[in-house]
Design a protein around this nucleic acid. Structure first.
Length: 179
DNA sequence: TGCCGGATCCTG
DNA sequence: AGGATCCGGCAA
């Protein structure tokens, strides 16, 4: 059981690689006696200060400190005053990068409830108290190894909601499972 | 200190 | 198409 949990080593790599490999893996959230297993189906990569869409493009601040920290920790922020977004920090400590989890699927739960970054955080009860949370320990929130099914492929497209990011908005850094 | 806009979602 | 709703970052 514990062996399936993705370790710091998994995250301490090129962000695009880690992002793609997270597809098909399971985001696990334990709330009291209840354990949700959510299959990751869509992610986006945010890489370094040169990526104008990345929060770290404004440099090291209190908010982005987590992204500069150790890989395998959650970076959770509040967006539009009412929704939370879950990222997992990647690459070596000191280099700001993370993978945004944009959609998951939970068995017996309508897709509509978990098919957006804000929606999945609301469903899984993830808020800013999880910022900097270590997701490699298997406590409350972690990720387990998973894979693509037969016939499933990775589709790369532009990231959502980053029209302000100059040339970086063109990067095909959004990855989702396509059939 | 004040203002502006956002890695979203829902309603009309 | 627009509103909800609040915090971070920057200008003043």
């Amino acid at each position: 059981m514990a062996a399936r949990i993705l370790s710091e080593r998994f995250y301490e790599r090129d962000t695009l690689t880690a992002a793609k490999e997270l597809l098909g893996c399971f985001l696990v959230r334990k709330i009291g006696r209840k354990t949700w297993r959510a299959r990751i189906t869509e992610v986006e990569a945010y890489v370094g200060e040169d990526d104008l869409a990345c929060h770290a493009s404004k440099g090291r601040t209190k908010r982005t400190e987590t992204m500069y920290g150790e890989p395998g920790h959650a970076y959770v922020y509040l967006i539009y005053g009412m929704y939370h977004c879950l990222n997992i920090v990647t690459e070596k400590g000191g280099f700001p990068a993370a993978v945004l989890v944009r959609a998951v699927e939970v068995e017996d739960v309508p897709k509509k409830e978990t098919d957006g970054p804000g929606k999945l955080c609301r469903f899984l009860e993830i808020d800013r108290t999880f910022d900097a949370w270590d997701v490699t320990r298997g406590e409350k929130l972690w990720v387990e190894r998973g894979r693509l099914g037969k016939g499933e492929e990775i589709e790369a497209t532009k990231r959502i909601g980053v029209e302000y990011a100059g040339h970086c908005k063109e990067y095909l850094w959004r990855f989702e499972i396509a059939k």
